[in-house]
Design a protein around this nucleic acid. Structure first.
Lengths: 344, 344
DNA sequence: TCATTGTGGAAAACCGGTTTACCTTCCCCC
DNA sequence: GGGGGAAGGTAAACCGGTTTTCCACAATGA
């Protein structure tokens, strides 16, 4: 491998000079020397060792992404989009991205602290980490950004949407289109984001003078199969008479749409469906899913920027960014014209 | 940060001793010294710097994964499964995984060689690289494993399935269940894997004494939308009278199933569908997709193992592994009993 | 003319590990 | 009593960069 000494020797100069030239340092280097070095670098295909550079500068030039479980998680476009944004933005600044997964973490105790051996300068948690993970991160002193971490985390940077507002807006959107009997599908009734979206839903109903019926809400996990099952059950109970379903996540919504269609229910003519997230799949479903888009790739970009800021400025206080969602009107919600009235 | 010198000092010994203990070296260290060091390491939460270690050992302890385009690619479970397998297996051996994407590569010329700055010890290409990428890799001298690279690559390790055989087996499977008029959906008629699967298809038909009709094959790209469109067209042309569709990929098959169902065609009663790949989605579709499973996660594991072997043994010749697929019988193919006969 | 300042460049220390070479002890055996 | 190992440990070189310190020389100013 070509090293900086090789270049220096080939130029008849010192490592110092080569280093200064390579890093575009403002210390004056004579024009001819600069050109000579640059030419040699190109000719000899020299690329500085990331390891040596990192060791010397105490900066690995890499950031880590932690996910709960790679196998199941990565497969979801939801996470994939975020990661794509991170990789892209990081690359823009010459940083590479290293993947860590909880699966390994759990299996191999010795690898618990693997991300604190200096191989990355900061961490982005995509998906909610357990407490012991956060603990290890805190101990490692690495700057850390938690995505969708909610309100509970105060020692790390967080970026999250306002789930109550999102739930409110989605519900309100349905009501304003004439829907009165609106079901809610929980993603995970023990997790903050789902609870908050539910709270927003109830607030919206209440603001619009609609009495919430406990039979309208359904609990379970965040899987398309769950959405499918709920939808199947819902249509098999005519007494429910729902005209719209607000699903806590797009994944649920996509499953629900399938369930409805398999049961012969037309979407949106017979049943409207709205989700939250903005997964790519939603743009390809039949019908296309109306949703509150989180702009997941941009969220990844924002996460990378936040982390890079925190790396530059390690003593800055942990920030908590509220990420904006916006409504994407597609095909899965219909207007019930005969029910339209104004609301406060 | 705690360094090896801190530990040495705290133990009243030398860096050498600490290093030897940490690496479980067989050079004899007295029992008490070993314990003293280990205790101190634990007490002071010492973790060796990956950078320093890597620099000294000329081994980064990381492998790189290159993908064509992170945004679109990662979202596909197809790639996600492979990557999951790689991450898992690598972690088993203390290696981390770094992500590279062609997107960045194309945008930023200076980052072209980013993976050759010593930050990773080898490369796995998930998805077919362009020639200039392979060129850069060759120049970097990094061990490299190309997944699904086909037969054309001889300077790098490859792992690929026998596409001709897979196409043959899938088709044969349909024929043996009584199907005679079988359509073929190309994933990308310019790419080797699709061409080969097509060749297998035609061989199987020919072996079974079925005359291939050019109208039975459809070209396009590898997207579920494409499968949907093909399916729609196919059912709208009654003269075709196909009873089964062999799709070059699961992604196509999944789209095709949707298209068929939207057109009111029952799967598999009216039209059977088989794919190749073994994407997770296939196990969740309606009906569940019968396919030739590539065991993608295990493929990732195999890729990691191959690469690690190549890293250990850089002078070994490039190997070409033929990866086995196996049939997963699910719900998308029916038996046409009245057509069953024996075949050679 | 002599101190002052600026310019261009090199030597050497340093980052935190691993590894090689070498040095004591101590024991054993002839 | 001395040679030969083995056991246990250390000093120093090295990996390939960055950065601090220092130096030589030319130009400038009083």
């Amino acid at each position: 491998m070509t090293t900086i000494s090789d270049i220096a020797k080939a130029c008849g100069t010192s490592k110092t000079t080569v280093s200064l030239v390579m890093n575009g340092n403002d210390r004056k280097i004579s024009r001819e020397m600069r050109e000579r070095v640059l030419e040699t670098v190109k000719r000899m295909d020299y690329q500085p060792s990331a390891l040596a550079r990192g060791l010397s500068m105490q900066r690995a030039g890499a950031i880590g992404i932690w996910t709960p479980e790679v196998p199941h998680i990565l497969g979801l476009q939801y996470y994939a989009s975020i990661i794509a944004g991170i990789v892209d933005e990081a690359a823009q600044f010459g940083l590479t991205v290293t993947l860590f997964s909880a699966t390994v973490w759990k299996r191999n105790d010795s690898s618990r602290l693997i991300f604190s051996d200096g191989r990355c300068d900061g961490l982005i948690m995509v998906g909610i980490p357990d407490f012991d993970v956060l603990d290890a991160v805190a101990k490692s002193k690495l700057p850390c950004v938690v995505l969708h971490g909610g309100r509970a985390l105060n020692n790390v940077h967080t970026i999250d949407i306002d789930n109550i507002k999102a739930g409110y807006d989605a519900t309100r959107y349905l009501v304003e289109r004439g829907h009165r009997r609106i079901g809610f599908l929980h993603a995970d009734e023990t997790r903050a984001f789902s609870i908050d979206r539910f709270e927003g839903y109830r607030n919206a109903l209440s603001d619009c003078g609609i009495d919430f019926d406990p039979a309208w809400s359904f609990v379970g996990n965040n899987a398309s199969e769950m959405g499918y099952e709920h939808a199947t059950n819902i249509v098999s109970d005519p007494s429910l008479a729902l005209t719209a379903l607000f699903c806590a996540t797009d994944l649920l919504a996509l499953g629900a749409i399938q369930g409805l269609r398999d049961a012969g229910v037309r979407v949106p003519a017979d049943m409207s469906v709205i989700g939250i997230d903005g997964m790519l799949d939603g743009a390809r479903s039949f019908p296309k899913l109306t949703t509150l888009d989180q702009s997941l790739e941009m969220l990844g970009v924002e996460a990378a920027r936040t982390l890079m800021g925190a790396i530059e400025n390690p003593d800055s206080e942990a920030g908590h960014t509220v990420w904006q969602v916006h409504l994407v009107e597609r095909e899965s919600v219909c207007v019930r014209t005969n029910e339209l009235v104004g609301f406060p």
